[in-house]
Design a protein around this nucleic acid. Structure first.
Lengths: 224, 224
DNA sequence: GAGAGAATGTCAAAAATGCGACATTTCGTG
DNA sequence: CACGAAATGTCGCATTTTTGACATTCTCTC
């Protein structure tokens, strides 16, 4: 079967030397955002790569009916918008800040110039991108092959930021439900079961993973 | 809402100059496979990048019960296994040939050496990888947000090779069903409806998309 | 610290989907 | 060209999930 791990992609900045990070910093604009503020919207152009310096962001798609489908959680050191630099694809997600957040924005031409001088920028980007694809494949597999309960558990693991001290997911159940493609009612019952198993705790507007490794273990045992 | 396009990733080889392609060819081993033959299995190590020179391959995961979940269709010029070169991730998919297929296999050290000399190898790889991530995001969105019929239609579009002359998908309905995460019975009725709409044709062990752009148009009109 | 708005917890009926079974069609092989 | 294996087409029935409703709990602001 499938092997569940605590896998998370390595942040882009962690893959770069201090010198490279410094050069990047001086090449871009630093912007600050408040909780919930929009960073980019679907359809925006102005190609460029954005890097979360502090705080976090979330990427998703707002439906016409106001529903929000979260696609990924972008923690400190991670990038987004990278594909606008290297492909002709339009921005397809809405990005908003989670908590007060600082974001470094490097316009495409400037980033490309850096890449030309120093291949490390591209190699690091390639590495995180490959790891992210991998994660996406895991999510796909989870959506298609797992039954309800393990599916929910797996998504919690994937969406949970890896930072040691914050196993807290600040999601409303409504959003999490549309992220998983299920109804809020059934999500709630699933969460209740996971809580009874002692794997998570439900809060108002948030979820806590009590013990990440315990959740992984349960998932490996109960995957079907 | 979501905008459905005829988007397909550009093959890796198409992004490289003729010289680069030539160097790649002489750097790797050429292998031939028969229809259905395994190229790699989950868990294999020996890192290296593989490129489909002729024919096609499919990537998926075999369940313990023999079920097969197709994850992607890899056409001529596309790569797989790339992540074994740049990350420590294990191979997580089974790759098998679709029809007689020629595959170029370049061991990791040799590919890295090429990259060090000529950044074009990495830039091209970055580009296709970004495009593939994009596709994966579309698949995810389809799985979570679309109702049954559009979901099936969308997957057909995504899985269909873009080659002009071959809008034929050589999938058994059983496999396609597990790829979509639905039962064969409901897949069949969905396909029947799409056939009645004149969008596809069902065959024995295969499906034909009669008119790709018509299917795209229908999808944009009926997405929900 | 009281009240309004927002989010969660839960229920029963309705709809969708899966499951297992079986008939039918197709393909390849001897 | 006849046969068996393999794949498709289809049908109820069982199960799961959604829907819509409503009560409850929480949080934030005045």
């Amino acid at each position: 079967m499938f092997e569940f791990s605590q896998y998370q992609a390595t942040p882009y900045l962690d893959l770069l030397s201090d010198d490279c990070v410094e050069s990047l910093r001086s090449a871009g604009h630093h912007r600050s955002y408040k909780d919930g503020q929009f960073v980019h919207s679907r359809g925006d152009d102005k190609p460029g790569i954005s890097i979360v310096e502090d705080g976090a962001a979330q990427a998703g798609i707002y439906g016409a009916d106001g529903s929000f489908v979260l696609t990924s959680y972008i923690g400190a050191g991670h990038t987004f918008g990278d594909f606008t630099v290297f492909t002709d694809l339009p921005r397809t997600h809405d990005i908003s800040a989670v908590g007060p957040t600082k974001i470094l924005e490097v316009p495409a031409p400037r980033f490309l110039a850096l890449c030309a001088d120093e291949p490390a920028y591209m190699q690091a980007l390639l590495k995180t991108t490959l790891m992210r694809s991998h994660l996406l494949l895991e999510m796909l597999h989870a959506l298609r092959s797992l039954s309800f309960l393990p599916r929910v558990a797996n998504f919690l693991l994937i969406l949970a930021p890896s930072e040691p001290r914050s196993p807290t997911l600040r999601f409303r159940q409504t959003d999490l439900a549309s992220t998983l493609g299920v109804s809020r009612a059934s999500l709630n019952t699933a969460l209740a079961k996971l809580e009874n198993l002692g794997l998570i705790e439900r809060g108002y507007g948030q979820l806590m993973i009590t013990d990440r490794s315990k959740l992984v273990a349960w998932l490996n045992a109960n995957a079907q």
